[in-house]
């Protein structure tokens, strides 16, 4: 018997749609699509607190993966060509703060990673003079989603930097 009542349109990529189709057992293609899944990565809320030296600046941003598969942030670069490193501050139980370079950041399916003070951040090397309101284009390279652009705004509003 032909599955004639199943419209021939591209299968939705999101996990939720896959589950719906799969549960109706309409198309084995739909189920296969679920297993592979795809990440759906968006980068937003990129802010750079006005740096205190011209040597480095920290960028905080949010990465949301609303897709059905993990993705991995492999690196970051800036429009003006400065080096950018992924760093993480750790604050131990006694309050001692330390910082380490992070090679990659995994963004799991359905998860949101918030880079914020006292945690993950992008460290821009030698950004030069940055003033409140300045904007900088950043490029985030993901393993599966490719390169995503985001505009980071320099701000002196630290309540905004620390998050509402």
């Amino acid at each position: 018997m032909r599955v004639s009542d199943s419209p021939r349109r591209p299968q939705p990529a999101t996990a939720r749609a896959c589950i719906r189709i799969g549960s109706l057992a309409l198309a084995s293609i739909g189920i296969a699509g679920c297993v592979s899944g795809r990440p759906d990565v968006a980068v937003r809320d990129a802010v750079i607190p006005v740096p205190m030296t011209a040597d480095s600046a920290s960028v905080y941003l949010t990465i949301e993966n609303s897709g059905g598969a993990d993705d991995v942030l492999k690196g970051v670069s800036a429009s003006s060509g400065q080096l950018a490193h992924l760093h993480e501050t750790a604050i131990e139980s006694d309050g001692r703060a330390s910082m380490r370079a992070v090679g990659t950041v995994r963004i799991k399916a359905g998860e949101t990673v918030r880079m914020e003070p006292g945690g993950l951040h992008v460290m821009l090397m030698n950004p030069g003079e940055l003033a409140d309101g300045d904007q900088l284009q950043l490029y985030l390279a993901f393993e599966k989603s490719g390169v995503k652009h985001v505009k980071a705004t320099v701000t002196d509003d630290y309540d905004e930097v620390l998050g509402g």
């Binding site: 607190p49 205190m52 760093h87 620390l162």
Partner: peptide, 17 residues
């Protein structure tokens, strides 16, 4: 420390503000 990129500038800016 003066080359501190994350914790110190946040503290000092919050206090200055």
């Amino acid at each position: 420390y003066t080359s501190c990129p994350d914790v110190c500038p946040v503290h000092l800016n919050v206090l200055a503000g």
